[in-house]
C-alpha cells in the first residue's frame, strides 16, 4: 500500500463495502432519529405511506421526513425520561451487564486455568465447555426456567426439598440473580475460550523464571499470568458489553420484564409494541444509543488502553 496508485485502487475497491456499511447503519439510525421527534400512534390513526404501499412511496415519505406525522419536538424524549421506569431500566441494564461481566471474567479465568492443565479427554472437554454458546438465547432461557428454576418441578426445587428446605421461587424472589445466572451461563464459554487461548500463549519460561525468583503460585498468578491476560480480558469485556446491552430474549422468556428486570431494551420494546407508541419507543432507542456510547467511552478509557500496548 505504498504507492499513490495502489492507495487509490484500494480506496476504490473498499468503496462498495464502506457504502453498504454506511447504508446499513445510517438508514435505521436516521429512521429512529426522525421518528423520535414525531407523534406516531398507529392505533390512534397515525399513518405513514398515504400515497400507497409501495417501496417507492415509503422512500419518498422517508426522504421528506414523514410529512403525515405531527412534529412534536422533544416531547417524546421528555415523556420517556420522566417516566419512573426509565431510571430503573438504566440501572437494571447496567447491573445485568456488570454482573454478567464480573461472573464471566472471574469464572472464565478460573475455568481457563483448569482447562489449561494437561488432562485426559482435553479435546472433548473443551468442546463441551463451549457448547452453551451454541444454544439459542431463547432456548437456554426456557431450559433454565422450566428445567432448573421451576418452583415445583425444577431440579433446584427437588434439590432444595431433598435437604428439607422450601424451594426458592427463583424468577420472582431473586429475579436479577437468576437472570445474571442464565446470561452468564451463555457467555461464560466465550470468555473461557478467549482466556484459554491467552493462557496457552503464556511463555512457560516466564513462569519458571518467576518461580526461581521466589514467586509463589499466587504471586505468579497476579504478577505474571494476570498482566498477560489483560489484553484478552479487555477483548472479552468490550465484546460482551456490546451484546449484553441489547440482551432481550432471556428477559422476554423468563420474567417478561416483571420483578424489576426491565432493561432499557425491554422498556423500548414495551413502548413500541405493547403501548403501540412508535415515537416514544424511538426516543427510547436514542437514549439506548447514548447509554451505549457512554458505557463505551468509559470502557475505552478504563480498559481500552490495554489494547495499545
Amino acid at each position: 500500500m505504498a504507492t499513490q496508485s495502489s492507495r487509490s485502487a484500494a480506496r476504490i475497491m473498499m468503496a462498495p463495502a464502506v457504502f453498504l456499511l454506511l447504508v446499513w447503519m445510517l438508514v435505521p439510525l436516521s429512521l429512529t432519529l426522525i421518528l423520535s421527534f414525531k407523534r406516531f400512534l398507529p392505533l390512534r390513526g397515525d399513518r405513514i405511506g398515504e400515497r400507497g404501499d409501495g417501496f417507492g412511496d415509503f422512500l419518498l415519505d422517508y426522504i421528506t421526513g414523514f410529512p403525515t406525522l405531527d412534529w412534536v419536538g422533544f416531547q417524546n424524549f421528555s415523556a420517556f425520561a420522566s417516566s419512573g421506569a426509565f431510571t430503573d431500566a438504566v440501572i437494571t441494564t447496567l447491573v445485568i451487564v456488570g454482573g454478567v461481566l464480573a461472573v464471566s471474567v472471574i469464572f472464565g479465568i478460573l475455568l481457563a486455568m483448569l482447562l489449561d492443565q494437561p488432562m485426559w479427554g482435553q479435546g472433548v472437554v473443551r468442546i463441551l465447555v463451549i457448547a452453551p454458546f451454541f444454544v439459542m438465547p431463547t432456548v437456554s432461557a426456557l431450559v433454565w426456567k422450566n428445567m432448573f428454576m421451576d418452583p415445583t418441578n425444577g431440579l433446584f426445587a427437588h434439590l432444595w426439598r431433598a435437604f428439607g428446605a422450601d424451594p426458592v421461587v427463583w424468577l420472582s424472589d431473586v429475579p436479577m440473580f437468576s437472570l445474571i445466572l442464565i446470561i452468564s451461563w451463555q457467555w461464560l464459554p466465550f470468555a473461557t475460550l478467549i482466556l484459554l487461548t491467552a493462557f496457552q500463549s503464556l511463555d512457560s519460561e516466564q513462569l519458571e523464571a518467576a518461580e526461581m525468583d521466589g514467586a509463589g503460585p499466587l504471586a505468579r498468578f497476579f504478577f505474571i499470568a494476570l498482566p498477560h491476560l489483560s489484553r484478552a480480558i479487555t477483548i472479552v469485556i468490550l465484546i460482551q458489553t456490546i451484546f449484553l446491552l441489547a440482551v432481550f430474549a432471556e428477559i422476554f422468556v423468563t420474567t417478561g420484564g416483571a420483578f424489576g428486570t426491565r432493561t432499557l431494551t425491554y422498556l423500548i420494546y414495551q413502548r413500541v409494541l405493547e403501548s403501540q407508541n412508535i415515537g416514544l419507543g424511538s426516543a427510547g432507542g436514542v437514549y439506548a444509543i447514548i447509554l451505549a456510547n457512554i458505557v463505551a467511552i468509559f470502557l475505552m478509557r478504563i480498559v481500552g488502553k490495554n489494547l495499545d500496548r
Binding site: 511463555d203 519460561e205 516466564q206 519458571e208 523464571a209 518467576a210 518461580e211 526461581m212 525468583d213 521466589g214 514467586a215 504478577f223 505474571i224 498482566p227 498477560h228 489483560s230 500496548r309
Partner: peptide, 19 residues
Amino acid sequence: PPAKRKLAMVFQSYALYPH
C-alpha cells in the same frame, strides 16, 4: 523448591516480564 536453592537462572528466551 527452586526459589530456596539460592540459584539464579538466565533462560534461553530471557523470560523477561513484558509488562
